[in-house]
Amino acid sequence: MKKRLISSYDEINDTFVGKIDGEDGFCADFDISNGIFLGVNKNNCPNSIYVNNASSVLNISKQTLENSNVKINIRCDSDCLYFTMFIENFHVCSLRCKNIFEIPLVNFEMDSNY
């Protein structure tokens, strides 16, 4: 399943934010890896991403983070959450963590060009 991603990058504060278009608010924020926060809605489904100190956390230049062509893949099973991020088709990061957040089985892509 694909969902439209709205993302922005604040170079002064080095903050990356992305959210699913049409989703309002969030119920919880989970630190899924080293400063990458995943917001979930009332059904515990991911609906936003927040990265403070984004250039150092993602090990990527601020100039690259300013690009609006962003794709984020999120997949969850009963054991793990898998997160992958691309900017302008450049692989920025992949991570896997235990699904201790009670996120249901999901498999979708947030795409700024959808």
Rank of each mutant, 00 (worst) to 15 (best):
K2C: 13
K3V: 01
R4I: 05
R4D: 15
L5M: 08
I6G: 10
S7M: 10
Y9K: 00
D10W: 05
E11A: 11
I12D: 15
N13P: 09
D14N: 05
D14V: 09
F16V: 06
F16R: 04
V17T: 14
V17N: 08
G18V: 03
G18C: 09
G18S: 12
K19F: 07
D21M: 08
G22M: 01
G22V: 00
E23G: 04
E23I: 07
D24M: 03
D24T: 09
F26I: 08
C27H: 15
D29K: 08
D29Q: 12
F30C: 07
F30W: 04
D31A: 07
D31V: 02
I32K: 02
S33C: 07
N34M: 01
N34I: 04
G35L: 04
I36V: 14
G39T: 09
G39A: 10
N43T: 08
N44P: 00
C45S: 13
N47C: 06
S48C: 14
I49S: 09
I49N: 03
I49F: 06
I49G: 06
Y50P: 01
V51Q: 02
N52T: 12
N52W: 10
N53C: 10
N53T: 07
S55D: 04
S56Y: 15
S56T: 15
V57F: 02
N59P: 04
N59E: 14
N59T: 12
I60Y: 07
I60H: 09
S61T: 03
S61P: 02
K62G: 10
Q63M: 12
T64C: 07
L65N: 07
N67T: 11
S68P: 11
N69I: 08
N69M: 13
K71F: 01
I72H: 06
I72A: 01
I72E: 02
N73L: 08
I74R: 00
R75H: 15
D77Y: 00
D79K: 06
D79T: 15
C80P: 00
C80S: 05
L81K: 00
M85T: 09
M85Q: 13
M85N: 09
M85P: 02
F86D: 01
F86T: 04
F86M: 14
E88L: 13
N89T: 06
N89M: 07
H91M: 11
H91I: 10
H91P: 13
H91V: 10
C93V: 13
L95Y: 00
L95D: 08
R96A: 12
R96T: 13
K98Q: 11
N99E: 13
I100V: 11
E102H: 09
I103S: 08
P104Q: 08
V106P: 04
N107S: 13
N107F: 07
N107M: 01
M110S: 09
M110W: 14
M110G: 06
S112D: 07
N113L: 03
